[in-house]
Amino acid sequence: MITILLFAHLQETVGKDRIELPIEQLTVMELKTALKQTYPLLELDHVMTAVNEEFARDNSKVTAGDIVAFIPPVSGG
């Protein structure tokens, strides 16, 4: 199981703040592609991704048990 966390407008677009997918392993890029097939999340190509609270690249591996968060441009402060 991979847990996906959504924030800000991504959360509003999907209508929930987390998605669980029964997947063993894939890359960040593959995960984004999979999600776009189910949800209207075109901007996933352009947001940052964190795996287990660390920024990750599109070719990073995601394995069952990992928490993936999509990080739209931040606006704290």
């Binding site: 924030f7 990080i71 402060g77």
Partner: peptide, 14 residues
């Protein structure tokens, strides 16, 4: 610090 907060800290404002 404030510049970096606006770059890398996952906080969003509506």
């Amino acid at each position: 610090a404030i510049e970096r907060i606006k770059q890398i800290v996952p906080i969003w404002k509506k």
